[in-house]
Design a protein around this nucleic acid. Structure first.
Length: 325
DNA sequence: CATCAGGGCCCTG
DNA sequence: CAGGGCCCTGAT
């Protein structure tokens, strides 16, 4: 375990409106021991340019006047440039520059979104981690129930990650790609990740060899980016779909809906019993494009997040059956 | 006890 | 382009 004793603090801001809790905490993401959330505060570990960091993201503002305090814990003192690069990166990952007012204007007459936007006014989509980290997660999601994905993630943390102690928390930090790149497949299979071992290793090698650059990919068009992602071993249309939205913030890329999402969407958007009648994926894709155009993924995400926040407050039997946590 | 699908993907024919 | 196989787990 590594204790991070050095603390530096920066202020970051967001366009308005900004809702802190629904942006920095996503109940739809599966739980993992690299983070902790309580109202107004999120602890999150971060592997950034060879440093293992502990972050505390703290709300000091309001929806109208956003202000976020970013506490950065590290082993040694960090340069001013390094600190500000972390602030910039978090701004991107948390979509703090996104102009939500355009979105709200575009969908202002939508009866489904109206009450949700009222409840989550200022919510942004977010993923806290890097492309590499999200690729690992998306591979763990493949062909597995949520419970199994959670246990594979924890197992990987315990074998290749680093336990950090800071801000009275102990949380796991991701490994660098090179650490997994040289592991033997049999060793990984010993951690019960199954056939995913090969994908985890090959993707780690791609990153360790610098054959892929997240910052460069950000500049690419949807089409080119999709092509680059699909080239990665173990990445298909389902993983590409979630990465395009969650990592690269593409609001207008929707080509795939997984069976699990299809069931939930059938209920949420078409108000039908998915056990009797599943709405076909192609029909869904046409429907979303026509209804919400270039904002489609954000619109869907608002409905999706609303459901998962509701699940925190009350038992939703049909959803529980689908999650199998 | 056996069988099967789960927030897919690769490879083969 | 369809379909088999893949690791493991809990539900049936």
């Amino acid at each position: 375990m590594v204790e991070l004793k050095n603390e530096q603090v920066v202020t970051i801001t967001s366009t308005s409106p900004f809702d802190f809790d629904s942006t920095i905490y996503k109940p739809a993401h599966f739980p993992s021991n690299d983070m902790r959330w309580e109202g107004g505060k999120r602890w999150q570990t971060m592997f950034w340019h060879d440093e293992r960091l502990g972050l505390i993201i703290e709300n000091k503002g309001t929806v109208k006047k956003p202000k976020i305090l970013l506490h950065i814990y590290s082993r040694k003192e960090l340069s001013k440039e390094f600190i500000s690069s972390i602030g910039d990166e978090m701004g991107l990952r948390f979509n703090l520059e996104l102009d939500l007012k355009n979105f709200y204007q575009a969908v202002k007459n939508d009866p489904l979104l109206k009450p949700i936007i009222k409840r989550f006014y200022g919510m942004r989509p977010m993923h806290h981690g890097s492309l590499y980290e999200y690729l690992i997660i998306s591979i763990l999601l493949q062909n597995a129930t949520v419970r199994r994905s959670v246990s594979m993630m924890q197992s990987l943390f315990e074998h290749y990650g680093t336990l950090l102690e800071y801000g009275s928390q102990k949380l796991w930090c991701f490994w660098e790609p090179a650490a997994l790149a040289q592991v033997l497949e049999a060793e990984l299979r010993g951690l019960k990740v199954g056939y995913r071992a090969k994908s985890l290793i090959r993707i780690s090698q791609t990153f360790a060899n610098n054959e892929i650059n997240e910052l460069e990919l950000r500049k690419k068009s949807n089409e080119d980016l999709e092509k680059e992602l699909l080239k990665l071993y173990g990445v298909g249309p389902a993983s590409t779909h979630i990465i395009m939205f969650e990592v690269f913030n593409r609001m207008d890329y929707l080509k795939h809906i997984s069976p699990w999402e299809q069931k939930i969407y059938t209920k949420l958007f078409f108000n039908k019993d998915y056990e009797k009648e599943l709405v076909p994926v192609n029909e869904m894709i046409r429907f979303f494009a026509q209804r919400w155009g270039k904002w489609e993924n954000l619109a869907i995400n608002y409905v999706w997040e609303d459901l998962w926040w509701e699940r925190r407050n009350e038992h939703i039997p049909w959803l529980e059956r689908l999650i199998r946590l």
